[in-house]
Design a protein around this nucleic acid. Structure first.
Lengths: 212, 212
DNA sequence: TACACGAGACGATACGTTCCGTCTTGACCG
DNA sequence: CGGTCAAGACGGAACGTATCGTCTCGTGTA
């Protein structure tokens, strides 16, 4: 569980806090995140939570940290999909999950806006990576690592790069290039690793667009 | 040349404008972009350009469009690197250029912040892709297309996907995952296409970090 | 003479801080 | 034990600052 206002305190007096208010703030943040996205305001959160603005600022340095913790809480309540042992199927599931997160996340992609804030705040960036990114990555990483140990993938596979390839291509299509994000994309990306073949145009079936 | 306030005008009266002011605004935008990044304000631009705020709003709908046009102007003044005909070398150059743009762009990455704005404004997104993205992509696309015609790459190569793979991985590392962006990354990405081999960890020489 | 211009006032938000008066809590003391 | 008390977190509200996008001037120019 994340400890927000943990700036090194004397600890002699372990600063109490109102658990109900704390949770109400996180809940309000989650609601507003789905309603107005990252454009939410601290004032709005405080009002929704029935809380003084100062109380929010007392425990969180700003919108970014607040959103990260709210998303982190929601993430922990989402069950991790089981690995079937079928590498292709598991990887397809992973890429499809990335597509869901980046392209169809609540209220038009919170992540890109949040990411922009991360660029100027290393502390916030670290928090984001620890609380949100690492848990997701470790799920896929363990799938791949297991396949390596079974001998299905080469031992020198650069797993971190693989994760960035998958997520990065999807993210970039949604945020920058605007190219369509379809299920075909997921298959092309997985083929890239498993068949060692370059990204080919393949006639496939299902097509969906990213335009929400 | 980009036309800024091109919101369909009567055209019967070709609305005169002060060319000097127009250029002064774009110049001021470019300067502030390198000084404070995308956090620049319209007021700041107007002040720097010695122009009334209303004059800026008369010709541009907002910060996003203004920044896009300023960047577009700067882009046109950058010469396109020549294609050597050596596919690997040309692709390496292209990926390295992507690294420069995303990781070392003036004032800590304007693109991510701009991208966040694109998510909620399809018109702006189209403008961004037409004026900034397409020119860059077409340079690399033509290199790849030439290699396809020489038979060095398969005819069914999905070029758009290839471009997203290269740029997306770099972009994602800089903006989201925070993994290091080194020259090794460029080589790994190019190997991925040319050797058809999965992303392997390879012992190479030069290492640089993305932390500005 | 029509209109773009520079200047800047304007109302509206949102920011982050600061005060208030109240209430909770942990530590101390009788 | 059980009462007292100060620290400090609370909801609430007002503050000054900053930026937004609009609007209105009077000037200058084509």
């Amino acid at each position: 569980m994340a400890v927000p206002g943990n700036a090194e305190r004397p600890l002699s007096r372990p600063r109490r806090r109102n658990v109900l208010s704390h949770q109400a703030i996180l809940d309000a943040t989650g609601q507003l995140l789905t309603e107005v996205g990252y454009g939410l305001t601290i004032e709005g959160v405080a009002a929704r939570a029935g809380v003084g603005k100062a109380t929010v600022y007392r425990w969180w340095p700003g919108k970014g940290a607040l959103v990260i913790e709210a998303l982190s809480g929601a993430l922990q309540r989402v069950p991790v999909e089981a690995a079937t042992g079928d590498l292709r199927a598991d990887l397809l599931t992973a890429v499809r999950r990335a597509i869901e997160i980046f392209a169809f996340a609540p209220q038009n992609a919170v992540i890109p806006a949040l990411a922009a804030d991360l660029m100027g705040d290393p502390v916030l960036a670290q928090q984001f990576r620890d609380q949100l990114l690492r848990p997701r990555r470790s799920v896929v990483a363990s799938i791949v690592r297991a396949a390596v140990e079974r001998g299905e993938l080469p031992a020198e596979l650069d797993i971190e790069l693989l994760l960035d390839l998958y997520a990065g291509t999807v993210f970039y299509r949604v945020v920058v290039s605007g190219e369509p994000v379809t299920d075909t994309l997921a298959e092309q990306l997985v083929d890239l690793l498993l068949d060692g073949k370059p990204p080919l145009k393949t006639a496939r079936k299902g097509e969906e667009s990213t335009s929400s």
